[in-house]
Simulated scan of single mutants.
Amino acid sequence: MKNDVPASSCLVQGTQDNRPPSRADKTLSLLLRALILFVLWAVLSGFFDSFHLTVGACSSLFVAWLSEEFWPPEGRMFRRPAMAFKLAGYALWLLKEIVKANIYVMRISLSPRAMKVIDPQIVRFRSRMTSKLGLTILANSITLTPGTITVYVDERGNFTVHALDGELAAGVPGDMETKLVDIFGGRP
């Protein structure tokens, strides 16, 4: 889809004030992306001497600067620190839920009664979110959680999810959607 509006002039969707991001917001966004890239680089490279850390920091900053125009306008809402912190909190919460779901799925899969306990179900629901980025994160979060897979989602927020059993099906969309609506906004 062609967009005639330059990315730098797009307004932030889902915020109270429809102002374009300020220079400070852009700088903070750049530094946050560079920091994330640098930490990832340091962990994956395993080199912690001053030369390699300097090269990693410069490379991370360059890639963060170079990728500025690739960020969708809606993603620019994370230039606001509160939004970035809310999303980081959601990521930590999601990790905890993934561990819990892993244990649950392992327990029912290894059960001698697995064939009786596993009861695949399809769940359909309409999300309260209107943000495309929020819908994408919700769909990916559902799929990342063991025992559930997002089969279909559209731009209007209609979801089809496959769940391994009734208990997992009952938890969809649940707290995931509530937490993401708090970050991205949505319908009441």
Rank of each mutant, 00 (worst) to 15 (best):
F85V: 08
M106Y: 15
K96R: 14
P173L: 11
L164V: 13
V12S: 08
T136R: 00
T145W: 05
T27Y: 01
R107N: 14
I103Q: 09
I142S: 03
M77H: 02
K116A: 14
R128P: 00
G56A: 11
A170C: 05
P112D: 11
Q121R: 14
F78M: 06
P81D: 12
V63T: 06
E74Q: 07
F62H: 12
L35D: 07
P21E: 10
L35H: 09
S67W: 04
S45F: 08
D4A: 11
E68L: 01
V151F: 05
S127N: 08
L11M: 10
G89S: 09
G185L: 07
T130H: 05
D182L: 10
S60W: 08
V63L: 09
E74F: 01
M83V: 05
R80D: 11
G174L: 07
A34C: 07
G171N: 15
R76S: 03
F70R: 14
G174S: 07
L44R: 06
F62Q: 06
S29K: 05
S59I: 09
V43H: 01
L30I: 05
G46P: 00
D25G: 05
S109M: 10
G171W: 02
G147C: 07
A34V: 05
G185C: 09
K86G: 01
T27C: 04
T27A: 12
P120S: 08
S59G: 14
L133I: 10
D17E: 13
M115H: 11
V43L: 14
A139C: 00
A34R: 05
R187W: 11
V153L: 01
L94R: 12
G14I: 11
D165A: 06
I137E: 04
G75L: 07
V55M: 10
A42L: 10
F159R: 04
L110H: 05
A24H: 05
G75K: 02
F47S: 10
I103E: 03
L61D: 00
I149S: 08
V172K: 05
E74D: 13
F85C: 04
P173A: 13
I137W: 01
A24S: 07
K26Q: 12
L110M: 12
L94C: 06
R113T: 12
